[in-house]
């Protein structure tokens, strides 16, 4: 029984790998964007994305092909994000507007930009950084729910499924998460629209 299952497993593995590689190519950018918004920096976004895909690869044989891959991936990502970010020590949060004091005087903090060209900029970079900094202060579950709802445009039902919770909890997390964001960004309210 074990030998038969292993033989079948070997054949399935190479087919799975080809299929999985194609899915990585297709979904990695979407996953990375969510990971970045969850983590707030590129290094952690890479770790989170990679960890999510590795975990998905390990369980790929159990993925039901009739369901959308991204829904399944989001569920795995949610677990990875919450696990990893909770274990990670809190990063020091600093304001991007705050000048950096050096031995030669004050300088402005420079944010490396890995995004595409300026045509994709929909908010000013300054505002983008402020919102990201506010997102970073939200509890992980609230942050993930806000990102799924407002960046990914997922329905409450989809979010509930992806975060293994119920719709009532999703509603509550969004309500409270958005209120916390608004409070953080109160002084920039007139620039939000």
């Amino acid at each position: 029984m074990v030998e038969l299952a292993e033989t079948v497993s070997d054949v399935a593995r190479s087919e799975d790998r080809k299929e999985f590689d194609a899915l990585v190519q297709r979904y990695h950018k979407q996953a990375y964007n969510i990971a970045y918004r969850m983590a707030g920096n590129h290094a952690d976004a890479e770790d989170l994305t990679q960890e999510a895909f590795i975990r998905a690869f390990r369980f790929f044989g159990q993925y039901r092909r009739e369901l959308p891959f991204d829904s399944w991936l989001y569920k795995i990502m949610s677990n990875v994000f919450i696990d990893r970010l909770r274990r990670k020590p809190k990063a020091m949060i600093r304001s991007l507007d705050q000048p950096v004091v050096t031995s030669e005087g004050e300088a402005q903090f420079d944010v490396p930009d890995n995004s595409a060209g300026p045509e994709e900029t929909v908010l000013s970079r300054e505002m983008d950084s402020r919102i990201q900094a506010a997102l970073d202060t939200l509890p992980e579950a609230f942050r993930l729910t806000v990102i799924y709802a407002d960046i990914e445009g997922m329905s409450y039902e989809e979010i509930a499924e992806s975060t293994s919770t119920n719709i009532g909890t999703v509603r509550s997390r969004l309500h409270r998460g958005r209120r916390l964001l608004r409070n953080k960004l109160k002084s920039y309210a007139n620039q939000l629209v």
Binding site: K29, Y32, I54, S115, L123, M127
Partner: peptide, 26 residues
Amino acid sequence: AMKLAVSRLRTIRPREDFVNSMLATL
């Protein structure tokens, strides 16, 4: 306004060779 602001955040893209390094890890 808060919902719209978050939805209008830039899409952050990974570095060009990120996908290849991830496939190599697999």
